[in-house]
Write a protein that binds this DNA or RNA. Structure first.
Lengths: 330, 330
DNA sequence: ACATCATGTGGAATCGATTCCATAATGATG
DNA sequence: CATCATTATGGAATCGATTCCACATGATGT
């Protein structure tokens, strides 16, 4: 691999001069510049960002930790992040947390060892050891999806989104609303969305019946099972079900269809996420659009600002959302 | 940021010794090892992979160029790649080609300047300037999705998949099969899948009618429009339509539903890709499962083998596929 | 005529690791 | 007791860039 040294000797100048040409800094005669450019052209020389980063202490690489790579939300967010990073001359190194806290921490350390300039964490929990790990890092971290104390974050308005969707269901005259949630270690999805649902009901003086509230694990199959549990355990069958993600909702739809319950006539269904499926299932699924791409962009911008300002100020951005009422809720 | 120098002086040894402890190489007394480990623990020292890479000429980073980040196929493949890379101690730097050849070439150069150990290219074309760019690179490249001459690649069996699906449609007694393809710069999807379709028909002595063959651009909307064109321009309406991707097929389904044509009774529909949507649309879509994750894994393995063997042998792996006949074809 | 300044160039240190080589102490071998 | 292998350690070069500083040249100003 050809280096700056080779270019220098081939062009008959010093490495210093080559570096000046490369960076357009300092004084270089037109003659020297031309010679150097020619040699670079001939040899196909590409300067090592590696060596440059070592010297300048800036890698122009940002680490992105995803809870799972192959997921619609993650890839939309990654797309948004990439848009901003690419525009600003950064590259993105991807890390997979596989939905495990230990792995999340491990990846933080790994990215630090790579000397990335910053890290974006798509967070799925707020566990103490995670916060500690972030604290002890010497690389700036911003989070997306969970409100992590002590660092800047971009979060969705999970509480209000869930509450508004529940209110929308109530407004359609549905009173017996079931709920499919997830484990509560995921604070945003597991706790806040559930609270929004509960509060909307309570504001109307309604209490969910025993058995109407079930949990899944983000898969459509678990949504199916949760719906089944609701159906089989409830005294009065719900006339609507609100699931905290589209996948769960799609599973619920499947179950209802399997046992011959008509949607939305007998039981309406709603989810969150505006996944591609939600548009194409029958009936099309009512859901909340979170605009993940925009969220990714905002997060990247937040991180870059932080890098350039060197200030320690913590910032919190709450994303807006949009209710999409489709055929599954009438 | 604490460096190996700090550790050395704090532990009262030389950098050499610290390096030996870090890498478990050479002779180190138990005493010295303990001192060093203690200091590392206290300071939270993390060695710079950057510096290490510069010296050892091995970054343990692989570049992955995707045609588009936010796409089901790409993220499944990326997942597979990550599985292997992670297992073997590599990290993945993502690059977005935005479906443009120039951008693909630009990203190749950028990854080379980062001194990645190797590059995986999810290829969408076989243009000459791309091949030239790869040729002039001093980093090993393997391709996925297109059979690029001169480098190793993992490819899907597009021709036979398309042919078999077409034959499956014929076997159901459908004779007037429309086709929705894409531009031919994408050789795998645009040329090979179309050829499979044509050859299957020809083997049965059938010729597609004028207007039955249309093109889209990978979006569901374009599938809708293509179906419309087929319907409006054909003298005899097709009793089946084969689209080269699921998205196109979903668009076609939409159009048929919009004009009140029953699927599959009047007109059957099939796609390729086994996308998540294909399972949940109504009627569920017949499609071909390409097992993208496995393809990603094989590609990563191919690249790593190449890195370790230092041989120049070109290899070509053809992935298998599985026909999934679902409700949209009866 | 001489200080001053703009322009042009290169030597050498530096970033943070690894690794070759020299050196020293210790114990075993004949 | 000389010789030699084994164990242990550190000095210094190296990877490929940037950057500080010294120095040279020629033009300009007074």
């Amino acid at each position: 691999m050809v280096t700056i040294r080779d270019i220098a000797s081939l062009a008959g100048v010093s490495r210093t001069t080559v570096s000046r040409v490369l960076n357009g800094s300092g004084y270089v005669s037109e003659q020297a510049r031309k010679r150097v450019m020619e040699v670079i052209e001939e040899t196909g020389y590409v300067p090592s960002e590696q060596a440059k980063a070592l010297r300048t202490k800036k890698s122009n690489v940002i680490g992105v930790i995803l809870p799972k790579i192959s997921t619609e939300t993650a890839s939309r967010v990654a797309d948004g992040i990439d848009t901003v990073l690419n525009r600003e001359g950064y590259q993105m190194i991807l890390a997979n947390a596989k939905l495990k806290v230990e792995k999340e921490i491990e990846q933080l350390k790994l990215l630090e060892s790579r000397r990335v300039d910053g890290i974006i964490l798509l967070a799925t929990n707020k566990e103490d050891r995670l916060l500690k790990a972030i604290e002890s890092l010497s690389v700036p971290v911003v989070a997306l999806g969970q409100d992590l104390p002590s660092i800047s974050s971009v979060i969705y308005d999970d509480y209000h989104a869930a509450r508004e969707m529940t209110e929308a269901i109530l407004k359609k005259g549905r009173n017996r609303i079931g709920f499919i949630g997830v484990y509560e270690s995921d604070h945003a999805v597991g706790v806040l969305r559930k609270q929004g649902y509960l509060d909307a009901l309570e504001a109307e003086g309604k209490t969910p019946e025993e058995g109407w509230i079930q949990k899944g694990d983000f898969t459509a199959e678990s949504g199916y099972r949760a719906m089944k549990s609701i159906w089989e355990s409830a005294d009065r069958k719900p006339d609507a079900v609100f699931a905290v993600t589209d996948r769960l909702a799609v599973g619920a739809l499947e179950y209802l269809r399997a046992i011959g319950v008509k949607t939305p006539e007998e039981t309406a269904v709603a989810g969150i996420g505006n996944s591609e499926i939600s548009k194409y299932v029958t009936p099309s699924l009512s859901t909340v659009d979170y605009n993940n791409e925009e969220a990714g962009m905002r997060t990247a911008e937040l991180l870059l600002e932080r890098l350039n300002s060197s200030g320690e100020n913590r910032e919190k951005i709450v994303m807006g959302y949009r209710l999409l009422i489709r055929d599954s809720l009438r």
